[in-house]
């Protein structure tokens, strides 16, 4: 039971909780307390020191929008943003309720009446922006992975293909996706025309930008991993005369999975960073737009709100990475990955 819990914690990246579990089960308390001081205490001290220095120095910095906010002001802003979000949700609910009541009355008077449901078009709150950014980053990232992994496998299997596209990859890889942004925007506007678009244009633009930058790490890692698979494993497949498709799915991909995941993690990390910048630059909905809007807004609360956004972006980036790492540990045979 205890070992199971500890294994589980290690798997999910909560290995810092292990000494607590061990302590609770009464295992060598002295050692465990030392361990707790090390793995939990030290980070807490560092965080406390950071907050202290921040609180001490922030008020010294005078900007045109007032003092740089300290931790407590930022915390207030965070609460404010949350309340705004809830207020907005309430308004939305009331709006739909009123609409339903109106429709019900109409139906009572005339059962054949045509009923219209109008969508609520309120202001996007901070939480809405987070959600938009998350959906965008995942869409772009998944599309990128769906292109990069098969391409990478193909390149890994065929030295000729790899040699052929290698120069293109080398040239496109270092290009900041933000440089692509104007082109992507223009192309999307020109090509993506429909009367009832499934996605917003801005969403498509942002997602494609994420795709463009998340392509390369996955592609390169997959190709290298597949090309360097243990020759014996491939020979096993040859001896039992596996069909090449089976060979790819049963041997090549599982063997390359740890490295593919490393590529995916890097891709998602880059994708998240780039997305925020792209949203700021293109005024596409999302956290980046929130930051930009607050900056343009220039109220006395703005700096605090931007800081909330900055911390949120960091926290989400961390969570995304943690998620990928856990997924990698669960799915791939290399249980020591990323430690």
């Amino acid at each position: 039971m205890k070992t199971k819990l500890i294994n589980y914690l290690e798997m999910t990246g909560f290995s810092w909780l292990c000494p607590v579990v061990r302590l609770c089960s009464g295992e060598s308390p002295r050692e465990q307390v030392n361990e707790i001081i090390n793995v939990i205490g030290l980070p807490l001290i560092a965080i406390a020191a950071f907050l202290f220095i921040w609180a001490g120095t922030a008020s010294q910095v005078k900007t045109s929008l007032g003092d740089l906010p300290g931790p407590s002001q930022v915390w207030e802003q965070a609460q404010g943003l949350w309340q705004e979000h809830q207020a907005e949700r309430e308004k939305e609910e009331e709006f739909y309720q009123r609409q339903e009541e109106r429709n019900a009355k109409k139906l009572e008077a005339n059962p054949d009446a045509e009923i219209k449901m109008r969508e609520y078009t309120g202001r996007a709150t901070f939480v809405d922006q987070i959600w938009t950014s998350l959906v965008t980053v995942f869409t772009g990232f998944l599309v990128g992975a769906l292109i990069a992994i098969p391409m990478g496998v193909a390149c890994g299997l065929s030295q000729k293909l790899y040699t052929a596209i290698s120069p293109l990859v080398q040239v496109f890889k270092p290009v900041s996706p933000l440089a692509w942004l104007p082109i992507v925007t223009m192309v999307v506007s020109a090509v993506y025309i429909s009367d009832d678009p499934m996605f917003e244009k801005s969403f498509v633009t942002s997602a494609i930008t994420v795709t463009l930058c998340s392509l390369w790490p996955t592609l390169i890692n997959t190709a290298v991993a597949v090309a360097s698979i243990d020759k014996d494993w491939i020979n096993v497949g040859r001896v039992i005369r596996l069909h090449w498709i089976t060979q790819v799915f049963k041997i090549a991909i599982p063997a390359a999975l740890p490295m593919i995941f490393t590529g995916l993690r890097i891709s998602l990390g880059i994708g998240w960073m780039v997305l925020i910048a792209a949203e700021m630059l293109a005024q596409n909905p999302g956290l980046g737009k929130f930051v930009w809007d607050e900056f343009q807004n220039g109220s006395s609360d703005s700096l605090g709100r931007i800081m909330v956004a900055v911390l949120t972006i960091g926290l989400i980036g961390f969570l995304l990475d943690w998620m990928m790492l856990t997924l990698q540990k669960v799915l791939s045979h290399d249980k020591n990955a990323g430690r």
Binding site: D230, D232, W233, N235, V236, R238, V239, I240, R241, K250, I251, P254, A255, L257, S332, H333, D334
Partner: peptide, 26 residues
């Protein structure tokens, strides 16, 4: 190559992501 000439490789070359049973099953 073919299964009529099965090979036992020098470093076992079992596929690490498959269990013992699944390795033979493949």
């Amino acid at each position: 190559p073919g299964p009529d000439r099965a090979v036992v490789f020098q470093n076992h070359s079992l596929l690490p992501w498959l269990t013992v049973y699944q390795n033979v099953e493949l």
